[in-house]
Structures are given as C-alpha cells and as structure tokens.
C-alpha cells in the first residue's frame, strides 16, 4: 500500500515539474516561429509555422497538444534543429549517465575512507584536516574547481585532455576523469563528513565495545559492526546524487564541453526551444523519482525493521 502511494506521489511530482516548466517557458516573451525561421522570415512563412505548431492558439491548447503527444510517446521535434526530441535525448543521456556514475564512484571511493579515517582519529589532525578541506571543497562552485583543474592538470601538467567527449574506450576514460572529479569534489567532502559523524556515534556504542572486547581485529570491528548503521544515510546520499546528476550537470558540462543533458537544457532554455526543454525536464524528473524509489527499496533491504510484519 505504501509503495502505491509513493509511486502516486512521484507521478504527481513529475507532472508538476513538467507543467510548471511549461508555464514558465510559455511566459517567456519570445517568438518561437522566429527562432525556427530566423530573423529574416516572411510574414506568410511565420504565419504558416505559427499554425503548424499551434503557437497562435491558447496556452491550454498548446499544453493539451503536448501532453496528448507525450502520452502517445511523441516528444515532438526541436524548433531549432528540427531533430526529434527523443533522438536528441537518446544522444545526451548516455554521456550524462557516464559522468554521473563516474562522479558517484569517486565520491564513494574517496569520501567514505576519508570519513572513516577522520572518525578513527577523532579530534586529531586527520579529523581536523578532513573538516577543513571539506569546508573549502563545499564552498567552491563547480566552475571554479573545473577551471582550476583544467589549468593545472590538463594545461600545465598535460596529463589529461582539455575537454570534449573523446572516443569510446580508454580515451573516453581520460576525458571523463576531470569533469567527474569536478562534480565529485564537493560530494567527497560531504560523504566524508556524513561517514565521520555516523561512525563517531556508533564507535561509542556498547556493541562496538563488545566486539572489541571479543578480540576482533579493528578492521572487522570497523567494517562489519560500526560501519553498517552508517549505510542507510549513505544510500540516501547516493540516491539524491543519482537523481540530481542524471538530469545533467549544467555548469560542469559547459566547462568541459561534455555533450550531456545539462548543456542541452541550458542551450534550449536560452533559445526558448520548448520541446527540448520539456523533454530534458521530463527525463530529469523521472530520474529523480526513480532514484528516490530505489533508495526506499534499498533502505528496506538494509534495515529489517522497515519490512512489513
């Protein structure tokens, strides 16, 4: 029953996000017919295009038109490039997904061990170093981190490419590292902080003392006993990140010329290219909803208390 209500609420949110986006885009005083035909189009041509896309009809009709088409699986075509939106999204989803997964992997790979280290040596220099570095990392916008990484690693040291998407395979990996790191740095800091705070609490618990008293090696105590209660918050974080990042990282993708959803959305909004905007927003909203549902499922798997009796 709960799962049904959750799915219903998710659908409502998706609908709300898409509809609110539609209303805001419609309110932008732009002339989409001019976007399609260019500034020197004739009156007749403009009128024909207006009729074809129902720009001359009321907002309600335009909205109904779009919703009916979406229900039929047709997302329309871009005003600017005339490409079908579904095809365009298909091209953009994979790069964004690679970036998102890369960033989340880095966050887990570095954030969690750093947090453990800080918790083990609470109030000593590792703890304080992690706290300060995470404060700095969380205070830097992605374009600052990205540009500095680009300058130092790619330009000065010539270790990695200066941006772009690269060929599939190792070349792709080389192109992926810097943008993924840019996205991940603030996340690493955040994951480290959460892991540290959770562990500091559990390391004081009686059952951890019991485990130590039994003579278990410290690594076993840490991984099998103290770390387990820290898992649900981390799963929540991964889910949130997955949802947000799967919608595209506007700034990072712009800095590194990465052909993902975020850059597409920014360009589409600047061009007032309604079908593309709505398509990207639809994908983003669905990604967030799916990620949230996944988090719930994993939570139940991790915590037996949440299971139905």
């Amino acid at each position: 029953m709960r799962i049904v209500r959750r799915i219903g609420w998710s659908l409502l949110i998706i609908w709300f996000v898409v509809t609110a986006t539609f209303l805001m885009v419609v309110a932008i005083p732009a002339d989409p017919a001019k976007t399609i035909l260019g500034p020197r189009a004739t009156e007749q041509a403009l009128a024909r295009v207006n009729e074809h896309y129902c720009f001359d009809r009321s907002v309600v009709v335009q909205y109904g038109c779009w919703m009916a088409n979406v229900a039929r699986g047709d997302l329309g075509e871009s005003y600017r490039t005339r490409r079908p939106v579904s095809e365009l999204l298909g091209d953009r989803v994979w790069p964004t997904l690679q970036l998102a997964l890369g960033a989340i992997m880095l966050q887990l790979l570095f954030g969690v061990p750093l947090g453990m280290w800080a918790a083990r040596r609470k109030r000593e220099w590792p703890d304080r170093a992690v706290t300060w570095v995470s404060l700095i990392a969380q205070s830097a916008p992605p374009f600052v981190i990205g540009t500095v990484l680009l300058y130092v690693v790619a330009y000065r040291w010539e270790l990695l490419p200066l941006g772009g998407y690269g060929e599939a395979g190792l070349d792709r990996l080389a192109h992926l590292i810097l943008p993924a790191a840019t996205l991940a740095i603030a996340g690493i800091a955040y994951y480290a902080r959460i892991t540290r705070n959770e562990l500091v609490e559990t390391l004081d618990q009686d059952y951890v003392r019991t485990a130590r008293a039994k003579g278990l090696p410290e690594s076993t105590v840490l991984m099998r006993h103290a770390f387990r209660p820290a898992l649900p918050p981390l799963v929540t974080l991964v889910g949130l990140d997955l949802g947000i990042l799967a919608g595209g990282a506007v700034v990072t993708e712009s800095v590194f010329a990465w052909p993902g959803l975020g850059r597409e959305m920014l360009q589409a909004i600047l061009d007032v290219d309604m079908p593309v905007i709505l398509g990207v927003v639809l994908v983003t909203a669905i990604a967030v909803a799916v990620a949230n549902l996944l988090v719930d499922v994993v939570h139940v798997a991790l915590d037996p208390r949440l299971r139905d009796p």
């Binding site: 709300f16 919608g247 506007v250 909004i269 909203a285």
Partner: peptide
C-alpha cells in the same frame, strides 16, 4: 515545499532568470 524542492535548483534558476530577464 516538497514540490518546489523537487524542481532541480539550476533548472528553476535558469528558467526564472531567463523568464524575468526577457520580461
């Protein structure tokens, strides 16, 4: 509040900014 938070921040910001700017 949940609904507003469901909006990705940058999407909301870019949309609002370009909407208000064009107005």
């Amino acid at each position: 509040v949940d609904l507003v938070l469901a909006f990705p921040f940058l999407l909301l910001a870019i949309l609002l900014a370009s909407l208000l700017r064009e107005s």
